[in-house]
Design a protein around this nucleic acid. Sequence first.
DNA 1: TGTAGTCCCAGACCGTAGTCTCTAATTACA
DNA 2: TGTAATTAGAGACTACGGTCTGGGACTACA
Lengths: 197, 197
Amino acid sequence: MSSLTPRQIKAKQTKSKILESAFDLFSKKAFENITVDEIIKRSGTSKGAFYTHFKSKYEIFLEKFKEIDGFYEEFIHSLSEELSYSEKLLRLSEAQMIYIKNNWGKELFRNLYMNALSSNHNYFLDENRSLYKIINKFVIKGQEIGEFKKGLLADEITMLITRCMRGALYDWCICDDLDLVMETKKFIRTLIEGLKE
Amino acid sequence: MSSLTPRQIKAKQTKSKILESAFDLFSKKAFENITVDEIIKRSGTSKGAFYTHFKSKYEIFLEKFKEIDGFYEEFIHSLSEELSYSEKLLRLSEAQMIYIKNNWGKELFRNLYMNALSSNHNYFLDENRSLYKIINKFVIKGQEIGEFKKGLLADEITMLITRCMRGALYDWCICDDLDLVMETKKFIRTLIEGLKE
DNA sequence: TGTAGTCCCAGACCGTAGTCTCTAATTACA
DNA sequence: TGTAATTAGAGACTACGGTCTGGGACTACA
Protein backbone atom coordinates (compact mmCIF):
# COMPACT_ATOMS: atom_id res chain seq x y z
CA MET A 1 0.00 0.00 0.00
CA SER A 2 2.54 2.54 1.16
CA SER A 3 5.33 1.18 -0.99
CA LEU A 4 4.91 2.78 -4.36
CA THR A 5 6.66 1.54 -7.43
CA PRO A 6 8.97 4.01 -9.18
CA ARG A 7 6.39 4.41 -11.88
CA GLN A 8 3.69 5.35 -9.37
CA ILE A 9 6.03 7.82 -7.72
CA LYS A 10 6.69 9.48 -11.03
CA ALA A 11 2.98 9.63 -11.75
CA LYS A 12 2.36 11.34 -8.43
CA GLN A 13 5.03 13.85 -9.23
CA THR A 14 3.39 14.62 -12.53
CA LYS A 15 0.08 15.14 -10.79
CA SER A 16 1.72 17.46 -8.31
CA LYS A 17 3.37 19.45 -11.05
CA ILE A 18 0.04 19.97 -12.72
CA LEU A 19 -1.64 21.00 -9.48
CA GLU A 20 1.15 23.38 -8.63
CA SER A 21 1.02 25.09 -11.99
CA ALA A 22 -2.71 25.40 -11.71
CA PHE A 23 -2.60 26.85 -8.20
CA ASP A 24 0.07 29.17 -9.43
CA LEU A 25 -2.20 30.44 -12.14
CA PHE A 26 -5.08 30.80 -9.72
CA SER A 27 -3.23 33.58 -8.04
CA LYS A 28 -2.57 35.36 -11.30
CA LYS A 29 -5.78 35.43 -13.24
CA ALA A 30 -9.51 34.80 -13.23
CA PHE A 31 -10.39 31.14 -13.10
CA GLU A 32 -12.51 31.24 -16.20
CA ASN A 33 -9.53 32.47 -18.18
CA ILE A 34 -7.24 29.65 -17.23
CA THR A 35 -7.06 27.02 -19.94
CA VAL A 36 -5.96 23.43 -19.69
CA ASP A 37 -3.39 24.10 -22.41
CA GLU A 38 -1.92 26.82 -20.27
CA ILE A 39 -1.70 24.62 -17.21
CA ILE A 40 0.01 21.78 -19.01
CA LYS A 41 2.37 24.07 -20.83
CA ARG A 42 3.39 25.64 -17.56
CA SER A 43 3.88 22.29 -15.90
CA GLY A 44 5.76 20.83 -18.84
CA THR A 45 3.31 17.98 -19.23
CA SER A 46 0.58 17.11 -21.71
CA LYS A 47 -3.11 16.69 -22.26
CA GLY A 48 -2.68 13.00 -21.84
CA ALA A 49 -1.08 13.50 -18.45
CA PHE A 50 -3.72 15.99 -17.37
CA TYR A 51 -6.64 13.78 -18.20
CA THR A 52 -5.16 10.68 -16.65
CA HIS A 53 -4.99 12.52 -13.35
CA PHE A 54 -8.12 14.64 -13.52
CA LYS A 55 -11.49 13.78 -14.93
CA SER A 56 -12.11 17.32 -16.05
CA LYS A 57 -10.72 20.81 -15.84
CA TYR A 58 -13.00 21.53 -12.92
CA GLU A 59 -11.63 18.75 -10.81
CA ILE A 60 -8.59 20.87 -10.29
CA PHE A 61 -10.69 23.55 -8.71
CA LEU A 62 -12.29 20.94 -6.50
CA GLU A 63 -8.87 19.91 -5.31
CA LYS A 64 -8.23 23.44 -4.17
CA PHE A 65 -11.62 23.64 -2.56
CA LYS A 66 -10.88 20.73 -0.28
CA GLU A 67 -8.39 22.91 1.54
CA ILE A 68 -11.31 24.64 3.17
CA ASP A 69 -12.07 21.70 5.42
CA GLY A 70 -8.85 22.40 7.26
CA PHE A 71 -10.18 25.82 8.07
CA TYR A 72 -13.34 24.45 9.67
CA GLU A 73 -11.41 22.06 11.87
CA GLU A 74 -9.32 24.89 13.13
CA PHE A 75 -12.15 27.31 13.58
CA ILE A 76 -14.19 25.21 15.97
CA HIS A 77 -11.36 25.23 18.44
CA SER A 78 -11.79 28.96 18.78
CA LEU A 79 -15.45 28.59 19.74
CA SER A 80 -16.20 29.10 23.40
CA GLU A 81 -17.74 26.05 25.03
CA GLU A 82 -20.42 28.13 26.68
CA LEU A 83 -22.15 29.18 23.51
CA SER A 84 -25.46 27.64 22.60
CA TYR A 85 -25.40 25.30 19.65
CA SER A 86 -27.47 27.75 17.65
CA GLU A 87 -24.87 30.36 18.27
CA LYS A 88 -22.08 27.99 17.35
CA LEU A 89 -23.74 27.16 14.07
CA LEU A 90 -24.26 30.81 13.32
CA ARG A 91 -20.69 31.73 14.04
CA LEU A 92 -19.40 28.83 12.02
CA SER A 93 -21.38 29.84 8.97
CA GLU A 94 -20.35 33.44 9.37
CA ALA A 95 -16.67 32.56 9.61
CA GLN A 96 -17.01 30.27 6.65
CA MET A 97 -18.44 32.96 4.45
CA ILE A 98 -15.89 35.54 5.48
CA TYR A 99 -13.17 33.04 4.74
CA ILE A 100 -14.60 32.15 1.36
CA LYS A 101 -15.09 35.74 0.38
CA ASN A 102 -11.58 36.75 1.32
CA ASN A 103 -9.58 33.68 0.36
CA TRP A 104 -11.39 32.29 -2.63
CA GLY A 105 -13.63 34.75 -4.33
CA LYS A 106 -16.61 34.43 -6.56
CA GLU A 107 -14.82 33.12 -9.63
CA LEU A 108 -13.60 29.97 -7.99
CA PHE A 109 -16.97 29.29 -6.51
CA ARG A 110 -18.73 29.84 -9.78
CA ASN A 111 -16.46 27.19 -11.21
CA LEU A 112 -17.04 24.84 -8.33
CA TYR A 113 -20.77 25.18 -8.47
CA MET A 114 -20.76 24.65 -12.20
CA ASN A 115 -18.56 21.63 -11.85
CA ALA A 116 -20.93 20.13 -9.33
CA LEU A 117 -23.74 20.53 -11.84
CA SER A 118 -21.94 19.13 -14.83
CA SER A 119 -20.10 16.23 -13.31
CA ASN A 120 -21.36 14.14 -10.50
CA HIS A 121 -18.54 13.93 -8.08
CA ASN A 122 -20.27 14.95 -5.60
CA TYR A 123 -18.23 16.33 -2.82
CA PHE A 124 -20.76 18.94 -1.76
CA LEU A 125 -23.20 16.42 -0.42
CA ASP A 126 -20.57 14.08 0.95
CA GLU A 127 -21.39 13.24 4.54
CA ASN A 128 -17.74 12.61 5.33
CA ARG A 129 -16.73 16.22 4.84
CA SER A 130 -15.48 17.99 7.94
CA LEU A 131 -18.10 20.64 7.54
CA TYR A 132 -20.85 18.11 7.56
CA LYS A 133 -19.47 16.25 10.53
CA ILE A 134 -19.00 19.40 12.57
CA ILE A 135 -22.50 20.64 11.95
CA ASN A 136 -23.92 17.23 12.56
CA LYS A 137 -22.24 17.04 15.93
CA PHE A 138 -23.66 20.42 16.97
CA VAL A 139 -27.10 19.40 15.86
CA ILE A 140 -27.03 16.11 17.74
CA LYS A 141 -25.86 17.79 20.92
CA GLY A 142 -28.41 20.55 20.46
CA GLN A 143 -31.14 17.97 20.18
CA GLU A 144 -29.85 16.10 23.22
CA ILE A 145 -30.06 19.10 25.49
CA GLY A 146 -33.42 20.05 24.06
CA GLU A 147 -32.27 23.14 22.22
CA PHE A 148 -33.53 21.81 18.90
CA LYS A 149 -36.70 19.97 18.05
CA LYS A 150 -36.57 16.28 17.43
CA GLY A 151 -39.15 16.27 14.67
CA LEU A 152 -36.40 15.93 12.10
CA LEU A 153 -33.43 13.62 12.23
CA ALA A 154 -30.05 15.16 12.94
CA ASP A 155 -28.93 14.17 9.46
CA GLU A 156 -31.89 15.90 7.92
CA ILE A 157 -31.24 19.07 9.83
CA THR A 158 -27.58 18.99 8.93
CA MET A 159 -28.53 18.71 5.30
CA LEU A 160 -30.89 21.69 5.63
CA ILE A 161 -28.19 23.82 7.18
CA THR A 162 -25.62 23.00 4.54
CA ARG A 163 -28.30 23.58 1.96
CA CYS A 164 -28.71 27.10 3.30
CA MET A 165 -25.01 27.60 2.83
CA ARG A 166 -25.11 26.34 -0.72
CA GLY A 167 -28.17 28.42 -1.41
CA ALA A 168 -26.55 31.58 -0.14
CA LEU A 169 -23.32 30.83 -1.99
CA TYR A 170 -25.20 30.10 -5.19
CA ASP A 171 -27.07 33.36 -5.02
CA TRP A 172 -23.84 35.17 -4.28
CA CYS A 173 -22.32 33.65 -7.38
CA ILE A 174 -25.13 34.68 -9.68
CA CYS A 175 -25.63 38.11 -8.21
CA ASP A 176 -23.42 41.11 -8.62
CA ASP A 177 -24.04 42.77 -5.32
CA LEU A 178 -25.05 40.47 -2.56
CA ASP A 179 -23.53 40.65 0.87
CA LEU A 180 -22.62 37.02 1.36
CA VAL A 181 -21.98 37.25 5.07
CA MET A 182 -25.11 39.18 5.94
CA GLU A 183 -27.36 37.12 3.76
CA THR A 184 -26.06 33.85 5.09
CA LYS A 185 -26.58 35.06 8.63
CA LYS A 186 -30.18 36.03 7.98
CA PHE A 187 -30.84 32.76 6.26
CA ILE A 188 -29.26 30.46 8.82
CA ARG A 189 -30.63 32.39 11.75
CA THR A 190 -34.16 32.15 10.44
CA LEU A 191 -33.83 28.45 9.74
CA ILE A 192 -32.40 27.76 13.16
CA GLU A 193 -35.20 29.74 14.72
CA GLY A 194 -37.54 27.28 13.06
CA LEU A 195 -35.63 24.38 14.54
CA LYS A 196 -35.84 25.48 18.11
CA GLU A 197 -38.02 23.72 20.61
CA MET B 1 -45.27 49.43 -32.10
CA SER B 2 -47.63 46.74 -33.21
CA SER B 3 -47.05 47.29 -36.91
CA LEU B 4 -44.00 45.30 -37.83
CA THR B 5 -42.18 45.71 -41.08
CA PRO B 6 -41.94 42.65 -43.32
CA ARG B 7 -38.34 42.30 -42.33
CA GLN B 8 -39.16 42.22 -38.63
CA ILE B 9 -41.87 39.69 -39.24
CA LYS B 10 -39.42 37.47 -41.03
CA ALA B 11 -36.94 37.81 -38.20
CA LYS B 12 -39.57 36.79 -35.70
CA GLN B 13 -40.39 33.78 -37.80
CA THR B 14 -36.77 32.78 -37.82
CA LYS B 15 -36.60 33.08 -34.07
CA SER B 16 -39.73 30.97 -33.74
CA LYS B 17 -38.34 28.35 -36.05
CA ILE B 18 -35.24 28.07 -33.93
CA LEU B 19 -37.23 27.86 -30.72
CA GLU B 20 -39.56 25.27 -32.16
CA SER B 21 -36.74 23.05 -33.31
CA ALA B 22 -35.11 23.36 -29.95
CA PHE B 23 -38.29 22.54 -28.02
CA ASP B 24 -38.78 19.67 -30.40
CA LEU B 25 -35.39 18.31 -29.50
CA PHE B 26 -36.02 18.80 -25.80
CA SER B 27 -38.64 16.08 -25.96
CA LYS B 28 -36.34 13.69 -27.76
CA LYS B 29 -33.03 13.78 -25.94
CA ALA B 30 -31.10 14.95 -22.93
CA PHE B 31 -30.47 18.67 -22.92
CA GLU B 32 -26.77 18.35 -22.59
CA ASN B 33 -26.67 16.36 -25.80
CA ILE B 34 -28.43 18.96 -27.88
CA THR B 35 -26.02 21.04 -29.90
CA VAL B 36 -26.49 24.40 -31.50
CA ASP B 37 -25.54 22.91 -34.84
CA GLU B 38 -28.32 20.40 -34.47
CA ILE B 39 -30.86 23.05 -33.63
CA ILE B 40 -29.99 25.25 -36.57
CA LYS B 41 -29.82 22.35 -38.97
CA ARG B 42 -33.25 21.21 -37.90
CA SER B 43 -34.66 24.70 -38.21
CA GLY B 44 -32.99 25.34 -41.56
CA THR B 45 -31.23 28.43 -40.25
CA SER B 46 -27.64 29.25 -39.35
CA LYS B 47 -25.26 30.12 -36.57
CA GLY B 48 -25.60 33.74 -37.53
CA ALA B 49 -29.34 33.57 -37.12
CA PHE B 50 -29.11 31.72 -33.85
CA TYR B 51 -26.76 34.16 -32.24
CA THR B 52 -28.63 37.24 -33.40
CA HIS B 53 -31.66 35.99 -31.53
CA PHE B 54 -30.04 34.36 -28.53
CA LYS B 55 -27.03 35.44 -26.55
CA SER B 56 -26.01 31.87 -25.81
CA LYS B 57 -27.15 28.32 -26.17
CA TYR B 58 -28.54 28.43 -22.66
CA GLU B 59 -30.82 31.32 -23.37
CA ILE B 60 -33.00 28.93 -25.26
CA PHE B 61 -33.52 26.92 -22.12
CA LEU B 62 -34.30 30.09 -20.26
CA GLU B 63 -36.99 30.85 -22.80
CA LYS B 64 -38.63 27.56 -22.03
CA PHE B 65 -38.25 28.14 -18.33
CA LYS B 66 -40.27 31.32 -18.46
CA GLU B 67 -43.33 29.23 -19.25
CA ILE B 68 -43.37 28.24 -15.61
CA ASP B 69 -44.56 31.62 -14.45
CA GLY B 70 -47.81 30.95 -16.20
CA PHE B 71 -48.23 27.92 -14.00
CA TYR B 72 -47.84 29.92 -10.80
CA GLU B 73 -50.41 32.46 -11.84
CA GLU B 74 -52.88 29.72 -12.47
CA PHE B 75 -52.07 27.76 -9.37
CA ILE B 76 -52.82 30.48 -6.87
CA HIS B 77 -56.39 30.65 -8.09
CA SER B 78 -56.86 27.12 -6.84
CA LEU B 79 -55.78 28.07 -3.32
CA SER B 80 -58.58 28.36 -0.83
CA GLU B 81 -58.84 31.81 0.70
CA GLU B 82 -59.09 30.40 4.20
CA LEU B 83 -55.62 28.96 4.34
CA SER B 84 -52.99 30.65 6.40
CA TYR B 85 -50.25 32.37 4.47
CA SER B 86 -47.74 29.84 5.74
CA GLU B 87 -49.90 27.11 4.33
CA LYS B 88 -50.27 28.94 1.05
CA LEU B 89 -46.54 29.29 0.72
CA LEU B 90 -46.00 25.65 1.50
CA ARG B 91 -48.56 24.51 -1.04
CA LEU B 92 -47.19 26.78 -3.66
CA SER B 93 -43.69 25.44 -3.27
CA GLU B 94 -44.95 21.90 -3.23
CA ALA B 95 -46.95 22.38 -6.41
CA GLN B 96 -43.98 24.09 -8.01
CA MET B 97 -41.67 21.20 -7.34
CA ILE B 98 -44.14 18.60 -8.51
CA TYR B 99 -44.64 20.58 -11.67
CA ILE B 100 -40.94 20.96 -12.27
CA LYS B 101 -40.23 17.32 -11.63
CA ASN B 102 -42.93 16.12 -13.96
CA ASN B 103 -42.80 18.68 -16.71
CA TRP B 104 -39.17 19.68 -16.91
CA GLY B 105 -36.83 17.20 -15.38
CA LYS B 106 -33.39 17.43 -13.97
CA GLU B 107 -31.53 17.93 -17.23
CA LEU B 108 -33.23 21.16 -18.09
CA PHE B 109 -32.70 22.51 -14.63
CA ARG B 110 -29.08 21.57 -14.63
CA ASN B 111 -28.72 23.64 -17.76
CA LEU B 112 -30.66 26.53 -16.32
CA TYR B 113 -28.64 26.58 -13.15
CA MET B 114 -25.44 26.40 -15.10
CA ASN B 115 -26.55 29.17 -17.36
CA ALA B 116 -27.29 31.37 -14.40
CA LEU B 117 -23.75 30.80 -13.18
CA SER B 118 -22.00 31.41 -16.45
CA SER B 119 -23.93 34.32 -17.84
CA ASN B 120 -25.42 37.04 -15.78
CA HIS B 121 -28.91 37.40 -17.04
CA ASN B 122 -30.23 37.05 -14.17
CA TYR B 123 -33.77 35.97 -14.29
CA PHE B 124 -33.68 33.94 -11.10
CA LEU B 125 -33.31 36.94 -8.87
CA ASP B 126 -35.56 39.17 -10.90
CA GLU B 127 -38.09 40.76 -8.61
CA ASN B 128 -40.56 41.11 -11.45
CA ARG B 129 -41.06 37.40 -11.86
CA SER B 130 -44.53 36.12 -11.09
CA LEU B 131 -43.15 33.75 -8.51
CA TYR B 132 -41.47 36.56 -6.65
CA LYS B 133 -44.53 38.77 -6.76
CA ILE B 134 -46.85 36.04 -5.57
CA ILE B 135 -44.66 35.10 -2.64
CA ASN B 136 -44.08 38.71 -1.79
CA LYS B 137 -47.79 39.34 -1.61
CA PHE B 138 -48.31 36.42 0.72
CA VAL B 139 -45.49 37.60 2.94
CA ILE B 140 -46.76 41.15 3.15
CA LYS B 141 -50.26 39.99 4.02
CA GLY B 142 -48.89 37.51 6.51
CA GLN B 143 -46.97 40.27 8.21
CA GLU B 144 -50.01 42.53 8.23
CA ILE B 145 -52.17 40.05 10.08
CA GLY B 146 -49.34 39.23 12.44
CA GLU B 147 -48.68 35.73 11.16
CA PHE B 148 -45.07 36.54 10.36
CA LYS B 149 -42.51 38.51 12.31
CA LYS B 150 -41.63 41.98 11.19
CA GLY B 151 -37.94 41.74 12.01
CA LEU B 152 -37.16 41.28 8.37
CA LEU B 153 -38.53 43.22 5.46
CA ALA B 154 -41.03 41.48 3.23
CA ASP B 155 -38.53 41.67 0.39
CA GLU B 156 -35.89 40.01 2.48
CA ILE B 157 -38.19 37.20 3.48
CA THR B 158 -39.28 36.71 -0.07
CA MET B 159 -35.68 36.37 -1.10
CA LEU B 160 -35.08 33.80 1.64
CA ILE B 161 -38.03 31.73 0.52
CA THR B 162 -37.01 31.73 -3.11
CA ARG B 163 -33.49 30.96 -1.98
CA CYS B 164 -34.80 27.85 -0.31
CA MET B 165 -36.37 26.86 -3.58
CA ARG B 166 -33.13 27.41 -5.47
CA GLY B 167 -31.20 25.58 -2.79
CA ALA B 168 -33.47 22.57 -2.95
CA LEU B 169 -33.46 22.59 -6.73
CA TYR B 170 -29.71 22.91 -6.85
CA ASP B 171 -29.25 19.96 -4.53
CA TRP B 172 -31.72 17.99 -6.56
CA CYS B 173 -29.70 18.71 -9.68
CA ILE B 174 -26.43 17.56 -8.20
CA CYS B 175 -27.80 14.56 -6.40
CA ASP B 176 -28.92 11.32 -7.91
CA ASP B 177 -31.59 10.38 -5.45
CA LEU B 178 -33.16 13.28 -3.68
CA ASP B 179 -36.88 13.59 -3.26
CA LEU B 180 -37.34 17.11 -4.50
CA VAL B 181 -40.88 17.54 -3.21
CA MET B 182 -40.23 16.17 0.26
CA GLU B 183 -36.97 18.01 0.72
CA THR B 184 -38.43 21.30 -0.37
CA LYS B 185 -41.31 20.86 2.02
CA LYS B 186 -39.02 20.20 4.96
CA PHE B 187 -36.85 23.14 4.05
CA ILE B 188 -39.59 25.69 3.51
CA ARG B 189 -41.62 24.52 6.47
CA THR B 190 -38.67 24.91 8.80
CA LEU B 191 -37.83 28.33 7.46
CA ILE B 192 -41.40 29.51 7.78
CA GLU B 193 -41.50 28.19 11.31
CA GLY B 194 -38.62 30.53 12.02
CA LEU B 195 -40.54 33.43 10.55
CA LYS B 196 -43.60 33.06 12.69
CA GLU B 197 -44.43 35.46 15.42
C1' DT C 1 -37.23 56.06 -58.10
C1' DG C 2 -32.35 56.26 -56.82
C1' DT C 3 -29.19 55.70 -53.16
C1' DA C 4 -27.20 55.38 -48.56
C1' DG C 5 -27.70 52.96 -44.63
C1' DT C 6 -29.33 49.15 -41.84
C1' DC C 7 -30.53 44.59 -40.69
C1' DC C 8 -30.88 39.56 -40.87
C1' DC C 9 -28.54 35.81 -41.58
C1' DA C 10 -25.22 32.41 -43.92
C1' DG C 11 -21.32 30.03 -43.06
C1' DA C 12 -16.17 30.16 -42.59
C1' DC C 13 -13.42 30.41 -38.78
C1' DC C 14 -11.48 30.25 -33.93
C1' DG C 15 -10.56 28.68 -29.18
C1' DT C 16 -10.73 25.30 -25.98
C1' DA C 17 -12.35 21.09 -23.44
C1' DG C 18 -11.99 16.55 -23.94
C1' DT C 19 -10.77 11.94 -26.76
C1' DC C 20 -7.99 8.73 -29.24
C1' DT C 21 -3.91 6.55 -30.70
C1' DC C 22 0.49 5.27 -30.21
C1' DT C 23 4.87 4.60 -27.76
C1' DA C 24 8.33 3.95 -24.46
C1' DA C 25 9.09 2.65 -20.06
C1' DT C 26 7.94 -0.32 -16.40
C1' DT C 27 6.10 -4.39 -14.25
C1' DA C 28 4.73 -9.20 -13.59
C1' DC C 29 5.64 -13.55 -14.16
C1' DA C 30 7.28 -17.87 -16.42
C1' DT D 1 16.38 -13.19 -17.69
C1' DG D 2 13.14 -12.98 -21.56
C1' DT D 3 8.58 -11.83 -22.86
C1' DA D 4 3.88 -10.42 -22.49
C1' DA D 5 0.91 -7.17 -20.32
C1' DT D 6 0.16 -2.82 -18.34
C1' DT D 7 0.58 1.99 -17.61
C1' DA D 8 1.88 7.01 -17.81
C1' DG D 9 1.99 10.24 -20.88
C1' DA D 10 2.73 12.81 -25.54
C1' DG D 11 0.34 15.12 -28.85
C1' DA D 12 -2.71 14.91 -33.02
C1' DC D 13 -7.43 15.14 -33.51
C1' DT D 14 -12.53 15.93 -32.70
C1' DA D 15 -16.59 18.35 -31.17
C1' DC D 16 -18.85 22.20 -30.19
C1' DG D 17 -19.86 26.94 -28.40
C1' DG D 18 -19.23 31.19 -29.92
C1' DT D 19 -17.21 35.15 -33.21
C1' DC D 20 -16.44 37.50 -37.46
C1' DT D 21 -17.05 38.90 -42.13
C1' DG D 22 -19.63 39.58 -46.09
C1' DG D 23 -23.62 40.14 -48.78
C1' DG D 24 -28.24 40.47 -50.30
C1' DA D 25 -32.64 42.17 -49.04
C1' DC D 26 -35.09 45.66 -46.98
C1' DT D 27 -35.93 50.56 -45.32
C1' DA D 28 -35.73 55.56 -45.20
C1' DC D 29 -35.47 59.47 -47.26
C1' DA D 30 -34.46 62.79 -51.05
